[in-house]
Write a protein that binds this DNA or RNA. Structure first.
Length: 412
RNA sequence: GCGUCGGUGGCAGAGUGGUCAAUUGCAUCAGACUGUAAAUCUGACGGGCUUCGCCCUACGGGGGUUCAAAUCCCUCCCGGCGCA
């Protein structure tokens, strides 16, 4: 039996919650969990080069996207370049997402202003996903297409409209070529407004794809030696489906699990609890696409080990800055305490002459060197440095925030 | 001095008798963003109110024509250009 390329070891467990601290070993280094995964969809963490990540952000792991890299520059080129690490020069372990999220973002959610994270799910804004939802005419009108069938998904490129097809096998093949340390089984991310029947259908389809993803992975001996495969739990906002999904995937030979799909703020806690109570304890769990600081606390408390989210960088580029208030909050169960973080819009009038540090309670590179007024000025003047510095700051904030939670779990 | 073109909301610049409190862009002000179609998107932007509508004041100043003027006429002021 070959040694698995991706292994997980729990270092310490919380007594009264599902929280744990651990280490994920990968061929390109260790990930000490809980950890925040920095998102670099197209093989770049927007506005930051590898050294910026190393020197100023301190992230332990970076995530890219299969769909985006497949379209541009193409997975063959990345393979020729020696894989994602060599191509991007990222120093950390890497993950590729399967493209399953794009089934949602370019499919059911396309142009509708629906996000996977519904703060308030409104009933008059029902967005169904799935088979035959998009007819050809609509697809042509938008220049977009995303049709789901049993075997996979047919897309048109958001770049040039060309048509492509992803199946579980194809997604895995592309991810083999890209060569990240951790790859993710192709899944269908559903809308938070999809109904029970559709969530069930999509979840079961995702399970079948999961099985095929494992098969496809096992057939590539080279890849099997150096890449770990995660399966994705779905089930939308329905607890019984979440539990069923976790049970089904637990029985499969995955190296870890992604928890995907849509949530609302109110059911995140319970969903994660049910899922992580069900998933095998000895394997790592990644919460896909979430979070905000408070969401990460929720996730950690309920047994998630890693988190990725575009928010730190997207917010940064649009002028929202994570700032600590100076208050320390403690979770109800008393397991974790953490600094309260708020978002400020640095472009607001009140910051334009504010020469205080970007974040007075932070000791990161940006907070130590730059004032709110300077950052506000950069944004007002439309300077590229604005997004760069803001991204460093927000990423550093969320990465160190998650690290802080880890330290408490180790000490407790 | 003569001729000519022009003076529109913070700026640029549409409109050239009623559908104009006035297109658009920029600037300004505010909001949104959770496996990145995103250095993006949304809203407000003369004043007031009982704000899916109503009332004031407004397109250089003053006067006039008209049921009705940013739009037509007269006059004054200011600016560009041309000729002296």
């Amino acid at each position: 039996m070959n040694e698995k390329p991706v292994k997980f070891k729990i270092e310490n467990k919380s007594k009264n919650t599902l929280a744990r601290a651990g280490v994920i070993n990968t061929p390109n280094g260790d990930i000490k969990t809980p950890a925040f995964v920095v998102v670099g969809t197209k093989g770049t963490v927007k506005s930051l080069k590898a050294e910026d990540l190393t020197n100023y952000v301190g992230n332990q792991v970076t995530l890219a996207n299969t769909y985006h890299l497949f379209l541009q520059p193409g997975e063959k080129l990345i393979a020729e370049a020696g894989g994602l690490h060599n191509f991007t020069k990222w120093k950390t372990p890497t993950i590729t997402d399967s493209g399953g999220f794009q089934v949602f973002s370019l499919g059911a959610a396309f142009g509708k202003g629906v996000t996977k994270f519904a703060t308030e799910v409104s009933t008059n804004q029902v967005v169904e996903g799935g088979i035959n939802v998009y007819n050809k005419e609509l697809a042509t009108e938008h220049g977009k297409l995303c049709i789901i069938d049993e075997e996979g998904v047919t897309f048109t490129s958001h770049i040039d409209g060309s048509m492509h097809r992803f199946t579980a096998e194809r997604s895995i093949e592309i991810q083999h070529n890209i060569g990240a340390d951790i790859i993710i089984a192709f899944d269908e991310c559903t809308s938070p407004t999809a109904n029970y029947a559709y969530q069930t259908e999509a979840m079961e389809r995702t399970h079948r794809w999961a099985k095929r993803s494992i098969l496809a992975h096992k057939q590539n001996y080279q890849a099997l030696k150096k890449q770990g495969l995660y399966g994705v739990v779905q089930g939308g906002r329905f607890l019984d489906l979440r539990k069923k999904s976790a049970e089904t995937l637990s029985a499969m030979d995955f190296d870890g699990f992604g928890i995907g799909g849509s949530f609302s703020k109110s059911d995140l806690f319970d969903s994660l609890k049910v899922v992580n109570q069900t998933l095998p304890e000895e394997k790592p769990r990644h919460l896909l696409g979430i979070g905000e600081p408070e969401d990460i606390v929720l996730g950690v408390l309920n047994g998630c080990d890693t988190f990725d989210c575009v928010n730190p960088t997207r917010l940064a580029r649009t002028g929202s800055i994570y700032v600590k208030t100076g208050k320390i909050k403690t979770t109800e169960c008393g397991t974790l305490s953490y600094p309260e973080i708020e978002k400020i819009n640095i472009k607001n009038n009140k910051y334009q002459k504010d020469l205080s540090s970007v974040d007075e309670f932070d000791d990161g590179y940006v907070a130590n060197n730059y004032s709110k007024a300077y950052l506000a000025h950069l944004f007002k003047a439309n300077e590229m440095l604005a997004g760069h510095l803001a991204s460093i700051h927000n990423l550093h904030t969320i990465v160190s925030f998650t690290e802080h939670l880890r330290l408490q779990l180790l000490q407790n």
